[in-house]
């Protein structure tokens, strides 16, 4: 499992809103001028990146309006409990779908400057619990595969040590 996936999967809806709101400016810039980050001869932005970004924006707006509507109706007590539960389920489904598309974008375009920035922005939302869990799993997987690159394994060990250190300092 990639790091972006493990972080986004554990993200609360409010954190995801905040994250996507911050990313909104760069996303609109990218959609307005898709060649801005690229060399004209060899465009860096793949067409699937643009499609994914468009999907993300659409899903995000849809989820935001639906969620706000549900909260407003709940505040006014205009919904019965069963309807509210149904709406909550729908919000959850939409959230899962949005997360999947976002993960797809972050895990499939490592050369794009814009996606790189999105990946870096994600660091602000990393929790210690997610980090230590991911570090443990990653080390276990790398050891299981008998990774040919010792450099990668040592990097993973270093990251694991940092996570343990952070956990100690937090206490």
């Amino acid at each position: 499992m990639s790091f972006s996936r493990s972080i986004i999967k554990g993200m609360h809806i409010s954190a995801l809103y905040k994250y996507l709101k911050n990313a909104n400016d760069s996303i609109t810039l990218l959609l307005e001028n898709p060649l801005s980050h690229s060399i004209r001869i060899r465009p860096v932005i793949k067409s699937h990146t643009i499609t994914l970004v468009e999907n993300i924006m659409e899903l995000y707006k849809d989820l935001e309006t639906f969620h706000a509507e549900t909260e407003e109706l709940a505040r006014r007590n205009a919904l019965e409990e069963s309807d509210l539960a149904k709406r909550d389920l729908k919000v959850n489904d939409k959230l899962i779908h949005l997360k999947e598309v976002l993960i797809n974008l972050l895990d499939n375009d490592f050369e794009n400057e814009f996606v790189k920035k999105l990946r870096l922005d994600l660091i602000d939302y990393v929790t210690l619990y997610d980090l230590t869990k991911h570090a443990k799993n990653k080390l276990k997987n790398l050891n299981k595969l008998g990774h040919v690159k010792p450099d990668i394994v040592s990097q993973a060990i270093l990251a694991n040590d940092l996570a343990i250190n952070a956990e100690k300092n937090e206490q």
Binding site: F3, D107, F110, I152, A159, L162, A163
Partner: peptide
Amino acid sequence: RYKNMVKQDIAQASAIFHYIDKYEYM
């Protein structure tokens, strides 16, 4: 000071994991 240290450690470890993901993808 400890909060800053924790933040720094988290950021550094996260950057390393992103690097590993990129390596595996390539």
